[in-house]
């Protein structure tokens, strides 16, 4: 057995390691090893790693949502199928975020973005359905908010570390 990562700990547990020129008792070494290993166990990542799929999903949805929103001056019925399809894709993105471990922040962001009673993409689409068509000034101002909202989701994903 020539691998030092296996050999050294085994020898240390059997005979005790040499620390600062003195051989340490095996029980003392065990306590020392535990002191190091227990905090290490707590070092599981607190946030999910970067996901290329999540990033692409957010970018695609940003572009498609903003393109559809531009048409909200027209009657809702004209675009009903597109709106419904987009709503499903937004919900899928939220579920994808929710399914990833340690991804609470991104999931909360998607919750806000897709909420039909909220005031981001989901809320805007609900309002369009309720009012049939919306004013150009309102659409323009909402677009700025929603675009910035998607940017926060995209920046959080791209800021995560690749593992």
């Amino acid at each position: 057995m020539n691998r030092p990562f296996i050999c050294i700990p085994l020898r240390c547990f059997r005979t005790g390691p040499i620390l600062m020129g003195q051989r340490v008792n095996p029980p003392c070494f065990l306590a020392l090893a535990l002191l190091v290993l227990v905090p290490m166990a707590g070092c599981a990542p607190s946030i999910a790693s970067y996901s290329a799929r999540a990033y692409e999903q957010a970018v695609d949805l940003k572009v498609d949502t903003l393109r559809l929103i531009e048409r909200a001056e027209q009657p809702y019925e004209t675009h009903r199928s597109r709106v419904e399809s987009l709503q499903v894709r937004l919900l899928k993105a939220r579920e994808f975020a929710r399914g990833r471990a340690h991804n609470e922040m991104a999931t909360s962001q998607w919750d806000i973005m897709v909420d039909p009673d909220g005031h981001m993409a989901g809320g805007f689409l609900s309002r369009w359905a309720a009012e049939d068509s919306l004013s150009w000034a309102f659409i323009r101002e909402v677009s700025i908010q929603i675009e910035s909202g998607f940017d926060t989701i995209i920046r959080l994903e791209s800021g995560k570390k690749q593992r």
Binding site: A106, I112, H119, R155, K161
Partner: peptide, 28 residues
């Protein structure tokens, strides 16, 4: 009124982004 609420939602999104990025730095 809707736009003001939208702005508040955006503030929440920005806060979540900052909190998430802080977690990344803590992990590093």
């Amino acid at each position: 009124a809707w736009l003001v609420r939208s702005r508040m939602d955006l503030t929440r999104l920005t806060a979540l982004e900052s909190a998430g990025l802080a977690q990344v730095e803590i992990d590093q």
